[in-house]
């Protein structure tokens, strides 16, 4: 039985925020869990935020709203500032290329150099979301299997499979196991 787990992913358009949410939700389906995912964004805003709210649980899910995220993946400063107050007991995973965390907060905040790893190792920032997914596979071990996240990622990201797989493994290696 998996208790209700909430994941909030936010950044700016083009970072693959929706793909990360879709991949984690799809992996939850492969895992035999129930899952919901809401996407919010403004088509007119630039430099604003895109947000996906993912919930997964063994039982049926009532509210799809993420109010107490177990994991908050912050990929932009605006996203971090906007949603950090929601995190009480969960873990913040932030990309230091964009986010300078508020160290005074009594919560667990883990840096994940997704952008720099993607640029340095694969030459393109495009793969940063696959780095994030690899890291999440490590963080969420015990809830969703790594194989299911990888399978879901390859389904949801139809191109550049070899590069994305490498980025995924790099992210997995970067993250300490929870």
């Amino acid at each position: 039985m998996a208790k209700r787990t909430e994941v909030l992913v936010s950044g700016f358009g083009g970072q693959g925020v929706v793909r990360i949410g879709q991949t984690l939700s799809t992996a939850a389906v492969y895992q035999g869990l129930n899952t919901t995912m809401l996407v919010s964004h403004g088509t007119e805003t630039r430099g604003g935020y895109v947000r996906t709210q993912v919930v997964m649980a063994s039982e049926s899910i009532d509210s799809p709203v993420v109010e107490n995220p177990d994991y908050f993946i912050a990929l932009s400063k605006a996203a971090y500032n906007r949603f950090i107050s929601l995190v009480k007991e969960g873990t913040v995973i932030y990309d230091p290329a964009y986010v300078e965390p508020d160290e005074s907060l009594p919560i667990k905040q883990v840096p994940l150099a997704a952008r720099d790893t993607a640029v340095k190792e694969l030459g393109r920032e495009l793969y940063a979301n696959a780095v994030v997914l690899g890291a999440m596979a490590r963080m969420m071990a015990g809830l969703v299997d790594k194989e299911n996240i990888l399978k879901a990622m390859l389904e949801r990201i139809p191109r550049f499979h070899e590069e994305n797989k490498r980025a995924f493994e790099l992210g997995y290696a970067l993250m300490p196991k929870e």
Binding site: A28, V29, L33, T35, T36, L38, V39, I61, P64
Partner: peptide
């Protein structure tokens, strides 16, 4: 909108 555009198992 949340029912039609929302994703779910």
């Amino acid at each position: 909108q949340l029912v039609t555009d929302g994703w779910e198992s």
